[in-house]
Design a protein around this nucleic acid. Structure first.
Lengths: 342, 342
DNA sequence: CTGAAAGCGCTTACAG
DNA sequence: CTGAAAGCGCTTACAG
């Protein structure tokens, strides 16, 4: 593996000049730059990342802390992050924390001990407020996607609007007897999780329109979990005419249970979800769309900007940016919702 | 941020001793070690990874090259990798290559240019043989999960056995008219992709039992893609009595299409998949189970072992291990398969 | 525009 | 068991 020194020697310049020529720094004559670059290519030179890190203090890496990678939302955010990081020539270091309390916290501590990154994004649900505070004190840009938080910059769907929009869609269709099925949050990070905010929006709209107030059901946050529970509480004559599910997975599980119980959707039961996962369309699920991959791209763009401004002002100059971006929900009407039957 | 030097001074020892005490190297008196550790804790010392990398040449990082993170198989493998890497105190660097030809190759080149890892796992479909050869020459342990390959160590489901088992299950039930629906492989990396091998096994079993030979259909590898295509070719009187789908996503898409066309499963159509995704159970899908997270854990375990033996023998001593591990498939019978109606 | 030199913060023979 | 010193391979003031 050739070193910078080899390139410099072969090009007949000093290490300093070779370094500048290769890094694109200015103050190098065009001729010299071209020559150094050619020699570097010929030799197959690849600068040592470790040496560069040590010299510059920059890792060119952004860290991701997530509770899961094998679920649609998290995978999509991660995809967006990876894509955007690549555009900025940054690597992504993945910390898959797993469920909180199931080894997640030890993994978090390990990150604190040895994770070396220039910027960090945490995908919600794995962290509590105290953790986020510690991260925010790391001296690097930190952002959260999936939940608004007072401790860091944050990005996510406007859950209040999403919950309201889903509920209002059914009210508009004429429903007066609705049930909200919330998906379980494994950890309660801040004052209100996404799930909580969607629930409250449902309740507010229900109250506003004077709907029958049924107690909210909370189910596991997977299709199979929601399905198992729905099989029980749907199988009774006094069931509602419409269901607002906290997520598409839950909605799909409910639809499947309804189908298996011989309850026709939407004739006898309307169902609306939140997410617009890829399988929502073939199942004809009416839902509220969000685009997590876009959120992932946006969070990286913000981190890159924040890194630049910190660099410029030499550190802890101004207050860190802890603003929140809420994405507007978009109702997608399909075949799972209709007016209630008289 | 305190440096090793600060710890050493505060503990009244040299940097060398402090380093040895902290790293757990032997040749340090117990008293000294304890003292150094205590001082390090008090000061909140965290060794610089960059400096350590430069001095040792080890990154304590393993790289993952994958075509996707937001699909069940890839997410699960990644989850297993992350978990096992954590156990070994290694970080994971994620390269989400995306579909080959859609920017995937440029990302691969970027990895070759600046990815610094001690071991590498590539999850199939994103790489072609030439790429794998280059990776194998990197001088670090490289393994592939998802496809057997001659270029590296590899791990995956025994696709031949899986395809045969699925087909034989339907034959055993009495079916003689089957259709295989294969999922599309975006790139054809080696001589036979998973999809190809499942297909060939289907054909071999069909021939062996003298079944009607229908041409294999190939569909997109998502539920929604398979669903759209199945809507067309299922809607005809001469449809088969049983379908062997290349994956659960495809099988689920087919079941949904059948349902929408008024074809009852399993009374009029049996369907079997491969994977056992979480939603297979609630949908009652008969399938061939595999456990990708386990494959991810195994591949990391192998990498750790390979790193140790390279270290021991100082480099390119013996031939690199390019063996293959095929996992035995496991048939899970549910409600989507039954004897054909007379 | 270019170069000599110091420095980033560790680890590890080598000597004692 | 411990320490002084060299070395890992870059970058970046500083001087010219």
């Amino acid at each position: 593996m050739p070193r910078l020194d080899d390139v410099a020697r072969a090009a007949g310049v000093s290490k300093a000049t070779a370094s500048r020529a290769l890094s694109g720094a200015d103050g190098v004559s065009p001729a010299t730059r071209t020559k150094v670059q050619r020699v570097a290519d010929e030799l197959g030179f690849r600068a040592s990342g470790a040496a560069r890190r040590l010299a510059t203090g920059l890792t060119r890496t952004i860290g991701v802390l997530t509770p899961s990678v094998d679920r649609w939302y998290f995978g999509s955010v991660l995809h967006g992050i990876a894509h955007a990081a690549d555009l900025h020539e940054h690597d992504v270091l993945l910390y898959d924390l797993g469920a909180f309390g199931h080894g997640g916290h030890e993994k978090f501590e390990r990150f604190m001990r040895r994770g070396e990154v220039d910027g960090l994004v945490t995908i919600t649900w794995s962290l509590v407020g105290g953790d986020l505070t510690r991260l925010a004190e790391l001296g690097i840009p930190v952002a959260t996607v999936g939940e608004p938080t007072p401790h860091t910059r944050s990005f996510c769907l406007d859950d209040d609007a999403a919950g309201a929009q889903a509920t209002e869609h059914l009210v508009q269709l004429g429903h007066t007897d609705l049930l909200h099925i919330a998906s379980q949050t494994e950890v309660q990070p801040f004052d209100a999780s996404s799930s909580d905010r969607r629930k409250r929006a449902f309740e507010a709209v229900s109250a506003e329109h004077g709907l029958r107030m049924r107690p909210v059901r909370t189910v596991p946050t997977t299709l199979e979990g929601a399905h198992a529970v729905a099989l029980h509480f749907l199988d009774r004559p006094d069931r509602p005419t419409g269901i607002v599910a906290g997520t598409d997975e839950v909605a799909l599980g409910v639809m499947l249970a309804a189908h298996q119980l011989g309850i026709r959707v939407p004739e006898e039961l309307s169902v609306v979800g939140v997410d617009d996962v890829p399988s929502a369309a073939p199942f004809g699920l009416t839902t509220i769309r969000q685009d997590p991959a876009q959120h992932g791209e946006d969070v990286v763009a913000w981190i890159m900007g924040a890194m630049r401004s910190r660099g410029r002002r030499g550190g802890d100059a101004s207050q860190p940016d802890r603003s929140h971006t809420g994405y507007a929900p978009e109702l997608v009407v399909r075949a799972s919702t209709a007016p209630p039957r008289p």
